[in-house]
Design a binder for these strands. Structure first.
Lengths: 148, 148
DNA sequence: TATTGTTATACTCTATAACTATA
DNA sequence: TATAGTTATAGAGTATAACAATA
């Protein structure tokens, strides 16, 4: 490998994906939002925000979880008032999981906190660098080494 | 937020940190390296490669794990021949965890696979973009929204 | 017959506490 | 007294299999 770029990015990516990094970030973003929101339940909440009202089986396929796992995590989120269950009018076997207003608020808050933190850390960057980074990161994530 | 850059990066980062993304990448990088190497044991192996010979307690502090957890995971790696235990000549309470040649080989292989995958996905990029991305990602990871 | 949500079972992993040995 | 490694116990979470209801 004459080109060191791959190893440079690999090292940075390794740091980024490290468990302690993710756990710390998650703790910051969900602070004060209730103990029902943790690293296990948040993906369900966030996935539901992307898909809209959705069955447990479909949501499981979306976020890569078994439907029994979705059921259990949804139980906790329902108890906390962050989602509710509704009958699916189109399929009487299914139960739709639907975010409540409180659930939507949690998702919106975490997303805004993350965006704000990123803005803060980019504040000292030249504007052109920040724009370039956003563009390149997007391409990297969409076409990067995660699709094969 | 008049500036959309924060939200753009937040969205890309969310995709990157998603469990399914990480699990898929990990499966690719460790394919064929033996079943002792999984998402639980690899951080121990990789951390040990960074620190060099190290006690379980120190390694736990390095990678954010309880020392009992390090002990259990090290047991599996030792059974697989990827690390060995040695008496610490400087502290007779401690046992040093040391990567074997096989263990070093596993770490080297996964790192080279990741770098190669990244190189592949950057092959179609203008060289200046690739260099800029490597530089900006490094700064972002070092100074980014993960340190507060 | 296949798929829905849910529950029961067995299994894995972890955190806490305990133990012995050494600093 | 504090810290080393390890082990036992208890708790949380998951995957597998099962169930009744519906497609």
């Amino acid at each position: 490998m004459t080109n060191p770029t791959g190893h440079e990015i690999a090292e940075a990516l390794g740091l980024l994906l490290r468990r302690s990094t993710r756990a710390g970030l998650h703790a910051q973003l969900t602070e004060g939002l209730g103990e029902a929101v943790d690293e296990l339940t948040y993906p369900v909440l966030s996935g539901l925000a992307r898909t809209g009202p959705c069955s447990a089986a479909d949501l499981g396929r979306e976020v890569g979880l078994d439907r029994t796992t979705v059921t259990r995590r949804a139980d906790r989120l329902e108890e906390a008032g962050l989602l509710r269950r509704e009958a699916d009018p189109g399929d009487r076997r299914a139960t739709l999981l639907v975010l409540t207003d409180a659930g939507q608020g949690v998702v919106r808050t975490t997303r805004e906190r993350l965006a704000a933190r990123i803005e803060d850390s980019l504040a000292s960057w030249p504007a052109a660098d920040a724009r370039a980074f956003a563009r390149l990161l997007r391409v990297f994530v969409d076409e990067g080494p995660f699709h094969a």
